[in-house]
């Protein structure tokens, strides 16, 4: 099976999940579609580096998260006012904010915490895999998860009480 066929299979298996990951990370549906396409194109270019023993989803997720980071960076550099964080830039008009309180809270997290939450809980990656995908240490992953959970706990205090 060549690279194109393998990636086609992976697109069928994981395309939607990656799309949702990118959409939550970028908070922009159109950009997310572009990001997923770029993810698979980069995977195609780097396919020779993909070792079959690695989890394909983990590999694609690492690429996708880096593509999203590039998009964030580009969005920031494209903006004149360098004092404004990329996350504070105007949101895409076509991104429908979720009604779900938990997802809304995750989406509102700062990017560094949002990334670890999405990788750890949505992509179901181990801390070691998250660390490899983000290019940080496992200790940093643990700290970010702790901080992210702390923020979420504060944000979702009322929700937890309602859920009982």
């Amino acid at each position: 099976m060549d690279a194109r066929e393998t990636l086609d299979t992976l697109m069928i298996q994981h395309g939607s999940r990656l799309l949702r990951l990118c959409a939550m990370n970028l908070r922009d549906t159109s950009l997310a579609q572009d990001a997923v396409q770029d993810t698979f194109l980069k995977a195609f270019q780097q396919f020779h580096r993909f070792r079959g023993d690695a989890d394909a989803l983990t590999w694609l997720t690492a690429i996708a998260i880096n593509v999203c980071r590039d998009y964030h960076r580009i969005a920031w550099f494209r903006h004149i006012d360098r004092h404004v964080e990329a996350d504070d830039l105007p949101r895409a008009a076509d991104f429908a904010y979720p009604d779900n309180t938990v997802i809304r809270a995750v989406t509102a997290l700062p990017p560094r915490y949002r990334e670890v939450i999405l990788l750890r809980y949505y992509q179901d990656m181990k801390q070691k895999e998250v660390a490899a995908a983000l290019g940080i240490s496992e200790r940093a992953v643990r700290q970010r998860l702790k901080k992210a959970n702390h923020i979420l706990r504060e944000e979702l205090k009322e929700w937890y009480e309602d859920e009982g």
């Binding site: 395309g15 799309l19 779900n100 179901d124």
Partner: peptide
Amino acid sequence: QQMVDHEFAQLEW
């Protein structure tokens, strides 16, 4: 995961 998949069900590749 279920929460996200349900919320973004319309987002399909």
